[in-house]
């Protein structure tokens, strides 16, 4: 990345930001919220921290977290989901969680990320800051972001659902060989995300208490061979972890009813 003649701004509003990058769109680097294309001359460094995107608020059943909130802030906001804390602990040590904004982290998150697995299971939605575009997390992960639309404005997380997470790694806090996140979308309806393999695997939806999901998750992991594990192992592991997650979700739902 060349950095000749670079200028710097710290805008305080969307309008100011838009104005600043209007003429240098593909030459702007949004610090805190995304990266310029490798090899591109960066002429404008935009420091995004004054845009007010680091807040977390509850809107009914949904948590709305600004794109410049850190992973640690996300953890605090979701502290009622016991298993979500585990996704963060595995993701990284405390310093990185204090340092990375959600926007930055999302620009790098990949298949091995346990937090991504958790958010996918919870069916999080993403709102881009500059364009105001709203996407599901799945759409966000698969779309090619435009260079001037890399800043995540907000993450909306339906975070009052039963949620469970299970992971297996070489050590208690190593990145997962396989992890499974499950949220109960409605009674008897489960949304299942699987992480661990390098590639991003599709999310599963499971309906009915009688369905263990074993066949589906085995099918999902059939070609999940990579440098970290064989597909055969992951298939077995997936079935085991899914069963444990479903058991936890049922338990949580039952506890909720009891209360």
């Amino acid at each position: 990345m060349k950095t000749e003649k670079m200028s710097y701004i710290r805008p305080t509003s969307l309008e100011e930001l838009k104005q600043a990058i209007a003429n240098v769109r593909s030459y702007a680097l949004l610090a805190g919220g995304g990266s310029a294309k490798p090899g591109v001359d960066v002429r404008l460094l935009v420091d995004t921290q004054a845009l007010g995107l680091d807040q977390a608020n509850w809107d009914g059943q949904n948590l709305k977290v600004g794109g410049l909130a850190t992973l640690s802030q996300l953890g605090h906001s979701l502290s009622h989901l016991q298993d979500f804390g585990q996704t963060l602990a595995i993701e990284s040590g405390l310093n990185v969680r204090n340092t990375l904004s959600l926007s930055n982290w999302l620009s790098m998150a990949a298949g091995r990320s346990p937090v991504l697995c958790g958010l996918r299971a919870l069916d999080a939605r993403v709102k881009m800051f500059i364009t105001g575009r709203e996407l599901t997390l799945e759409e966000f992960l698969r779309c090619q972001l435009q260079i001037d639309d890399t800043l995540v404005g907000e993450l909306e997380i339906p975070a009052t659902r039963p949620f469970a997470f299970e992971s297996v790694g070489r050590t208690p806090l190593d990145l997962p060989i396989l992890c499974v996140g499950v949220s109960e979308v409605e009674p008897g309806k489960y949304r299942i995300a699987v992480g661990g393999p390098d590639m991003l695997l599709p999310v599963l939806n499971l309906e009915g208490y009688e369905n263990s999901g074993e066949a589906e998750i085995r099918r999902l992991l059939k070609t999940s061979d990579d440098q970290w594990a064989s597909a055969g192992y992951r298939q077995d592991l997936g079935a085991t972890l899914l069963a444990r997650c479903l058991q936890k979700c049922i338990q949580q739902a039952s506890n909720k009813e009891t209360r």
């Binding site: 710290r10 610090a31 805190g32 405390l94 310093n95 990185v96 340092t99």
Partner: peptide, 15 residues
């Protein structure tokens, strides 16, 4: 007051 990695921040952001 929070521990962060100074290798992951740009100096300008620390202003």
């Amino acid at each position: 007051g929070k521990p962060v990695n100074s290798c992951m921040f740009l100096a300008v952001q620390a202003q």
